[in-house]
Simulated assay, not measured.
Amino acid sequence: MSVRHCVALAAALSLGACATVTRGANETWTVETSPSGAQVRTSNGFRCEQTPCAFKMPRKSQFTVDITKPGYKPWRGQVTHHVSGPGGVAMAGNVIVGGLIGIGVDANTGAMLDLDPNPLVVRLEPAPLPPIIE
C-alpha cells in the first residue's frame, strides 16, 4: 500500500464519530433575563443564583427551567434539542464514509444536537402588587 493510500485510509477512519470529535457531547447553554439577577433551576439538577449564567450541558438534554426573582412572576419553560446544521453535516460524514461505529457514537453522545433555545432569553413580568386594605 502506498503512502498516499495510507494517508487516505487514515483520514477516512478518522471521520468515524465526526460530531463527537468536532463538537463534543456537551454544549454551553446560557440564560439571560431582563432584569438580570434572577435565580435559575433546571429539572436536571443545574442551578445558578444570579442571571446571566451559563452551564455546560449534555447536548442531548431535555429539561424544564424555572426562573424566579422577588417582585416578578415566576417563569417556567422547556428546553429541548434538535439536529443542528454542523451536527447533521458531521453525521452525514459518518454515513458517506460508512462509519457505523461513528453513527452509533454520535447518536449515543448526542453530539449532532443543539439545545433549543440557546441562549434562553426571558423578560420577567412584574408581579401584581397586593391590594391595599384600608
Rank of each mutant, 00 (worst) to 15 (best):
A54D: 04
K60C: 03
P119E: 01
A17G: 04
V40S: 00
C18L: 15
I132N: 08
Q39G: 11
R47Q: 15
I133N: 15
P130F: 09
D66I: 06
V105A: 09
A8H: 11
G87A: 08
P131M: 11
E49V: 00
T42F: 05
T28K: 08
F55V: 09
K69C: 08
W75P: 00
A25G: 13
H81C: 03
I101H: 10
S2K: 12
N118G: 06
T33L: 06
V7K: 12
H81N: 10
T28N: 10
Y72K: 09
T109N: 04
N118D: 01
G16K: 07
L120W: 12
A8F: 13
M57N: 11
P58S: 08
V122Q: 06
S36L: 05
R76D: 13
H5Y: 02
G85H: 01
V89D: 14
Y72D: 01
K69P: 01
P58H: 02
L124N: 01
G77Y: 08
G16D: 06
V95Q: 09
H82Q: 05
N44H: 14
Q39D: 06
I101S: 12
L100G: 13
S84N: 03
S84Y: 05
G87F: 07
D114Q: 13
K60W: 04
F55T: 03
V122R: 04
N118F: 07
A25N: 13
P126H: 07
R41F: 11
G85T: 04
M112F: 15
G102E: 06
Q62M: 15
V31W: 10
I96D: 08
L120H: 12
G87L: 07
G71N: 02
L100E: 03
T28D: 02
G77W: 03
V122L: 09
A107C: 05
A19H: 10
H82I: 08
A12R: 14
T42I: 03
P128W: 04
C48N: 00
G99F: 07
V65T: 02
Q62G: 15
N26Q: 14
V65A: 07
Q78I: 08
N44M: 12
Q62A: 15
G110A: 05
I67V: 04
L120I: 15
G45I: 07
I132L: 12
G88Y: 07
P74Q: 02
K69F: 13
G99A: 14
A12W: 14
L13D: 11
G98F: 10
P52L: 10
D106Y: 07
V79I: 00
G24N: 08
A111S: 14
F46P: 03
P126C: 13
S84G: 04
G99D: 09
H82M: 01
V21G: 09
L124V: 10
A54N: 02
A10V: 15
L13S: 00
Y72H: 05
L115K: 08
A12F: 15
I103Y: 12
L120A: 15
T51S: 01
T80G: 13
R123K: 13
M1L: 09
D114C: 06
H81R: 09
G99V: 11
E125T: 07
P119R: 14
N94Q: 01
Q78G: 11
V65M: 02
P74Y: 13
A17R: 01
E49Q: 11
A54C: 04
F55M: 07
